[in-house]
Structures are given as C-alpha cells and as structure tokens.
Measured scan of single mutants.
Amino acid sequence: ESETFDVELTKNVQGLGITIAGYIGDKKLEPSGIFVKSITKSSAVEHDGRIQIGDQIIAVDGTNLQGFTNQQAVEVLRHTGQTVLLTLMRRG
C-alpha cells in the first residue's frame, strides 16, 4: 500500500535540504526510482516536516522522474526556482 502526496516548499539558505539516491531494484520485488536519502538540519524540508527519508520523489515541478538517473534527478532539482513542488510516494 502506498500513498502519493504533494509538498510545496520554499527554499531557504540551505536550499531544499535533501540528498537523493537513485535505486534500480528488481522490478517485481523492489521499486526503482529516486529516493530521499537524507535531510539536512534546519532545511526547508526539515522545517516542513512532511517528507521522510525513504520517500520516493515521483516528480519535481511536474517533471516526472520515472527512468531518470541519480545525476539527471540532481540536475532537475538544481534548476528549480525558489518555490518547488515535489510529488512523493510513501510505501506503507
């Protein structure tokens, strides 16, 4: 069981404050995608409180990250504006 949710964030001096990890899993058993690996102290993400380590980032400002490499996803996140809309999925 999984839930998908949107989080809109405004960057602070730390930026968004997440590091991400790309993961290619076994299609049947484990998900592939871009996941939140860590959250920086005092960052926008930590202050917001809704995003957790292990959440999958589905889209950034409407750009679907399906099939993106870790590096491609980093580039998408790097080129966002001051306000960012993240679409995430959390597995229950």
Rank of each mutant, 00 (worst) to 15 (best):
I39W: 03
D48K: 08
D61C: 02
T80F: 01
V13S: 15
T69N: 08
I20P: 04
I53L: 07
N64E: 12
K41T: 09
G92D: 11
E8R: 13
T69P: 05
G62N: 07
G15R: 08
R91M: 08
M89P: 02
Q52Y: 03
L65Q: 01
G25K: 09
F5M: 05
L88F: 08
H79N: 08
I18G: 02
E1W: 08
L77T: 03
L16T: 04
L29R: 14
Q71I: 06
I34M: 07
R90M: 04
V13I: 15
T69D: 09
S43F: 07
T19V: 09
E8D: 06
N70G: 10
G17N: 04
F68C: 12
N12T: 14
V60T: 02
M89T: 12
A21N: 09
R50I: 07
K28W: 11
G25P: 10
I20C: 09
R50C: 06
I57F: 02
V45Y: 06
L85M: 13
S2G: 12
L88H: 01
T10Q: 10
V84D: 00
I34D: 00
T19N: 11
Q14V: 14
V76P: 00
N64F: 08
D55Q: 02
V84Y: 04
E46K: 06
I24E: 14
T10Y: 08
A73K: 05
I51N: 03
S43Y: 05
F5C: 00
E46Q: 11
L9I: 15
L16A: 04
Q52L: 07
V60M: 04
Q82H: 13
A73R: 04
Q52T: 05
E3S: 11
V13R: 15
Q82C: 07
V45Q: 11
I57C: 03
D26Y: 10
G81I: 03
H47C: 13
Q56H: 05
Q14T: 12
V45H: 06
F5V: 04
V13L: 14
L85F: 08
E1V: 11
N64L: 10
A44I: 13
V45L: 08
G22H: 14
I34Q: 05
F68M: 11
Y23P: 09
V84A: 06
S42R: 13
L16S: 06
D6W: 02
R78N: 12
D26V: 09
I57P: 00
Q71F: 07
T63H: 12
E30T: 15
Q71L: 07
L85R: 15
Y23T: 12
T69I: 02
T80S: 10
V13M: 15
V7L: 04
E75W: 03
E1F: 14
I39E: 01
L77A: 00
D26L: 08
S32G: 13
G49R: 07
T80M: 02
I20Q: 01
Q82N: 12
G25E: 12
L65W: 03
I34C: 06
Q71P: 08
K27I: 08
I57A: 01
S38N: 11
I18P: 03
S38V: 00
T69M: 04
G15K: 12
V84L: 06
L85A: 13
S2Y: 14
T80H: 01
I58Q: 04
Q82T: 10
R90Q: 03
T83A: 04
G17T: 05
D6L: 09
I39A: 00
K37G: 07
G22P: 14
V7C: 10
T63E: 12
E3D: 12
E3P: 08
L85V: 13
Q71T: 12
A21Y: 10
T69F: 04
E1N: 14
Y23A: 15
V7Y: 06
G92Y: 11
G17A: 03
L29S: 14
I57V: 09
Q72M: 10
G92L: 10
F5W: 07
A73Y: 03
